[in-house]
Every structure is written in structure tokens, then in C-alpha cells.
Amino acid sequence: MAKKIKIIVAKPGLDGHDRGAKLLARIFAEEGMEVVYTGLRQTPEMIVAAAEQEDADVVGLSSLSGVHNYFFPKVVELLKSKGLNDVLVVGGGIIPIEDYDFLQKSGVKAIFGPGTPTMDIVSFIKSNVRAR
């Protein structure tokens, strides 16, 4: 049985803009991934619990309400505290470019801003995902 990439798509915080998250979830599935969509209003603890229980290879975070600098590093930090160091964390949404550096330093491996072709995201994930 071929291994499948398992990805959590999550919306941290109270932001309700999930068009992008849902669209990407669908596209990831079409690319053969197994996508766990967690829905809205996720705390970092909930996202990490999902990643842990689902043995997720990737966690994709989406934020359009300007809370990325708070939530994204928090998720990475919690994953690390559980020893889940090899989970690939990526983010997207409305994120000023000046924040990219900070986020990448805190362990978010890539940030995909508005207008990123979805296939770029897919291929980034495929080439950076861990082996199991």
C-alpha cells in the first residue's frame, strides 16, 4: 500500500475566513493526500492534539485576521514540546512579507501569501515532507 501524505488543515483563532483553507483541503485531496480538516476556532493545543493523534506529516495553518505571529509559532513550539519535530508546518493567508522572516525563524517552513499558485504549495509539501 502506497504511503499517503497526511495533512492537517487548520484555522487557528476566531477568524472565519475559510475559503482558502477549504479550497486547499480539496486540492490536497485531489493530489492524493489524506486531509484532516479541523474546522474553525482551533487553539494551538487542539491543532497539535490533532497532529499527534492523526500522525500528521504536515500541519497547514491559515490566518487572515492578523494573528499569525501569535498562533503559528505557538503551534510549532507545542509540536516541538511533544517531540514532533519532523512535522512540516506551513502557513498561509494575509501575512505581511515583513513577518515571513520571523515566522520562518520560529519554525514555520514556508508561508504562502495571497495569489500563490496552489500547485506551488502542493509541490513544496511533497518535496519537504518527512519519511515515515
Binding site: G13, L14, D15, G16, R41, T43, S65, V67, N69, Y70
Partner: peptide, 18 residues
């Protein structure tokens, strides 16, 4: 702000960062 819209006070745990 989103906490107000979702019916939470600013000091609620879900309001963190928002």
C-alpha cells in the same frame, strides 16, 4: 474585533492574539 463578534470577552482564552 472577532472576540466581540463571537461573544467572548477580551480576556477569554479563545481571544488570545485576537
Amino acid at each position: 474585533q472577532l472576540p466581540t463578534q463571537a461573544g467572548y470577552d477580551s480576556d477569554h482564552p479563545l481571544s488570545m492574539g485576537e
